[in-house]
């Protein structure tokens, strides 16, 4: 498999674009950024084609690149947000230590926040975002990309057993989150 060959690159792109794009969307939560990550994934694959181990699965390799880029993006965004939100509000001329984050915290009326929280999709999104990186990736790869524990283990560089434990922990957290939000089905009781 020579990814420097445009025909082959196109073929690999067509076979994996949907999965990679959706993984990026679900990880970073933004279509524009997800498109950027998808493109960068293939540029990386092109420039670092020599790092692909012969005999391995191209899709596994691409998922790994895409996942790493997504997390790099999230970390950078988190850092930027922290840096900007912790900056003092100087434009008002106040020098009492007020920050942008403090102004944001009080800007949303409680009723709006409550409505948003009750929305199932937002709630699931929030619960997934709150999961640790590894658990989040395991859930997404398993649920939306139909990967087996072994395949996920290859993408993440873990053992299949660890991946299974991660998935179980993540689903337990999801279930409790749903239950707290009153969104778990009534027949499902907390087993733990």
């Amino acid at each position: 498999m020579d990814l420097r060959d445009p025909t082959q690159l196109r073929k690999v792109y067509e076979a994996n674009k949907r999965g990679l794009y959706n993984l990026a969307v679900r990880l970073v939560g933004d279509r524009q950024w997800a498109e950027d990550i998808l493109q960068e994934t293939f540029v990386r694959a092109y420039t670092r084609a020599e790092t692909f181990k012969a005999g391995g699965k191209v899709s596994t390799w691409l998922y790994r690149i895409c996942m790493n880029l997504s997390y790099d993006h999230l970390r950078a965004r988190k850092y930027r947000a922290m840096a900007s939100l912790d900056a003092p509000v100087t434009s008002t001329g106040d020098s009492d230590g007020a920050t942008w984050s403090a102004t944001l915290a009080s800007s949303m009326p409680p009723a709006v926040a409550q409505v948003e929280q009750n929305d199932t999709e937002d709630c699931v999104r929030r619960l997934i975002d709150e999961l640790p990186e590894r658990e989040r990736t395991v859930v997404l790869l398993r649920q939306y990309h139909g990967m087996t524990f072994k395949e996920i283990a290859e993408v993440l560089g873990l053992t299949a057993r660890t991946v299974q434990n991660c998935l179980r922990r993540a689903k337990q957290k999801l279930f409790f989150g749903l239950k707290e939000a009153g969104l778990a089905p009534p027949q499902a009781e907390a087993p733990y």
């Binding site: 699931v124 997934i128 939306y144 179980r168 689903k171 337990q172 279930f175 749903l178 499902a188 907390a190």
Partner: peptide, 9 residues
């Protein structure tokens, strides 16, 4: 519980 979590996804 696992089914509920999976369904929510």
């Amino acid at each position: 519980a696992l089914r509920a979590a999976t369904a929510s996804l």
